[in-house]
């Protein structure tokens, strides 16, 4: 019996501990999209944060002048693939919220093209989320959300809104596009929060 026990434990040890339950590692990067790919020129791109106290808006040049972070992280798609050790550059949500006050606890991310997704504000702060504009040392391609996308790597990747154009704070955890239509309101891959 001992060799059977060893076989089972060996198999579980072979599984990369960075992979949440139900996920398989991929080396490519599947493109998932709910619509046509928006093509947003950086000359016209703007990013804004709106709270109950007003709006803050950055142009591309103003955005590039902010503190830029290098981010190495794993990403997990609800459709069961994970990509480990991805490299990004972007501006942290902490940097963007410096000097911004809100009593709201939740945020709706809005994208060019109309996509929305909801995230608790405290899960965007403290080094947990960025507006990323480079992947693997190259400008982020439009099909992957360029010129800039939200990345919230500790949640399933539908929360990492492609083509992001702004964050709007809100008092309640209102559901975004996919959260209204079947996906989980929160989306923690380690708890397999995939669907309602």
């Amino acid at each position: 019996m001992s060799f059977i026990t060893r076989g089972f434990s060996g198999r579980s040890h072979d599984r990369d501990p960075r992979l949440p339950p139900g996920q398989t590692e991929v080396s490519d990067w599947p493109v998932l999209s709910a619509g046509p790919t928006p093509r947003v020129d950086t000359e016209e791109w703007e990013f804004s944060i709106r709270t109950e106290n007003g709006a803050h808006t950055w142009t591309w040049d103003q955005f590039m002048a902010l503190k830029i972070d290098d981010v190495s992280t794993d990403i997990h798609c609800v459709t069961h693939w994970s990509k480990l050790g991805t490299s990004w550059r972007g501006v942290s949500i902490d940097t963007l919220f410096e000097g911004i006050e809100t009593s709201h606890d939740f945020v709706m991310a809005h994208s060019y093209g109309g996509y929305t997704t909801n995230v608790p504000l405290d899960e965007l702060l403290n080094g947990q989320a960025w507006i990323a504009f480079e992947f693997d040392g190259e400008p982020l391609e439009a099909e992957h959300g360029g010129p800039a996308r939200l990345i919230v790597p500790h949640l399933y990747f539908w929360k990492s809104a492609k083509w992001v154009r702004g964050l709007v704070t809100m008092p309640n955890d209102d559901p975004g596009f996919w959260e209204q239509s079947g996906y989980h309101i929160h989306g923690d891959p380690w708890k397999e929060e995939r669907y309602w």
Binding site: L32, A34, G35, V78, T79, F177, S181
Partner: peptide, 24 residues
């Protein structure tokens, strides 16, 4: 549009989302 295990149905006139069908 096929988005993973979901279909996103958009209006041919204005691109707005009409319907979604998602399996999981």
């Amino acid at each position: 549009y096929v988005d993973g295990s979901a279909f996103v149905v958009r209006c041919a006139s204005c691109d707005a989302v009409l319907a979604t069908v998602m399996d999981g």
